[in-house]
Computed example of a mutant assay.
Amino acid sequence: MFLSVKRLTKAFGELEVLKDVDLDIDKGNIVTIIGPSGSGKTTLLRCLNALEMPNDGVFAFHDGIEVDFSKQPSKKEVTALQRRSGMVFQSYNLFPHKTALENVTEGPLIVQKRPKKEVLELAENLLNKVGLGDKMDLYPHQLSGGQQQRVGIARALAIQPELMLFDEPTSALDPELVGEVLKVIKDLANEGWTMVIVTHELKFAEQVSDQIIFIDEGRIIEQGPPEIVLKSPKQERTQQFLQRILNPS
């Protein structure tokens, strides 16, 4: 087990977005989260990275570290939690005034204070890995959406996280650019990365996932391997959702 999440709860004012969510993530597994818009998928992902602070819940990691959100965690605990994961956003979130290479080196150099020579070598290797070795000196506005998202993936990998988080990484892309981003994620899956992915790409989810979670109105309705959740779901709500997605007429 890499991470066990218990009783995760998150509210924005009176609106309770996540309600007592329990989630286990095994090391080297890919967990995919699906569900309708507004169901709490992105909030769940952002809570895993403490970009949103849960109102309650306990995160227990494989190395014995626990973060209990029923008490106010210290800034040090939150920072340590954030450093475990790399986040890939649906809208890229690149620095527009920095080149692809500078975007990738920012975290390791500025936040982690790692040696410049080591970071530059790592960043170049990562940009080559995502197929952008010839685009290192270009700025975001000179890149396609798919290329920008691949820079975003390289940037998240550059902090050398234990966990990769993807928030609908293809939703802002033109259809013909989706494949190039999904290929990079598939390659990471084949390398054994631990990942949590929020996506509407059900075929992709079926191909890469060890576990699929269907969430609705802030609760996990169904979870299990893709052949169960996507092919023969037990819950009526899951069946309704998949029917609507797969047969939208």
Rank of each mutant, 00 (worst) to 15 (best):
T32W: 02
L94V: 06
N247T: 12
G13Q: 09
A100M: 12
L126P: 12
E227M: 09
Q72R: 15
R114T: 00
K129L: 15
T32G: 02
S171I: 07
F214V: 09
L51Q: 13
P161F: 06
K76A: 14
K135W: 07
I33P: 06
I228D: 14
S74L: 05
I245A: 09
L132A: 04
K41L: 02
I213M: 04
G146E: 10
N103D: 09
G40T: 05
I25G: 04
T9R: 09
N55S: 14
L163V: 01
W193S: 07
D22A: 00
G35V: 05
V178P: 03
P175M: 03
P140F: 02
F59C: 02
S39I: 03
S39D: 02
N247H: 14
D174C: 12
F89K: 11
H97S: 13
Q239C: 00
E191L: 12
I228K: 15
G35C: 09
G38A: 07
N103H: 12
I220P: 05
K10V: 00
C47L: 01
V151E: 04
M87C: 08
V229C: 07
L48W: 09
F95N: 10
L94Y: 04
K19W: 09
F2N: 03
G179P: 10
V178F: 09
L44C: 01
T99A: 01
K113S: 03
S39Y: 09
E180Y: 05
D22P: 05
S85E: 08
F61G: 13
F12P: 01
F12E: 04
L157H: 11
F12K: 05
G145V: 10
S39V: 03
D167I: 10
A50P: 08
P248R: 01
H200C: 07
V229Q: 11
D216T: 06
I159M: 15
D20I: 09
K203T: 11
D68S: 12
Q90K: 03
D20R: 07
I25E: 07
I185T: 10
E180C: 08
A158F: 11
T43A: 11
G145Y: 14
L202M: 06
L177R: 14
A80W: 11
P54F: 11
K19C: 12
I215S: 04
T42P: 01
E118A: 14
G64W: 06
L3Y: 01
S171E: 03
L18K: 05
E180A: 04
Q207L: 13
T32P: 04
I33L: 15
E66I: 08
F69T: 07
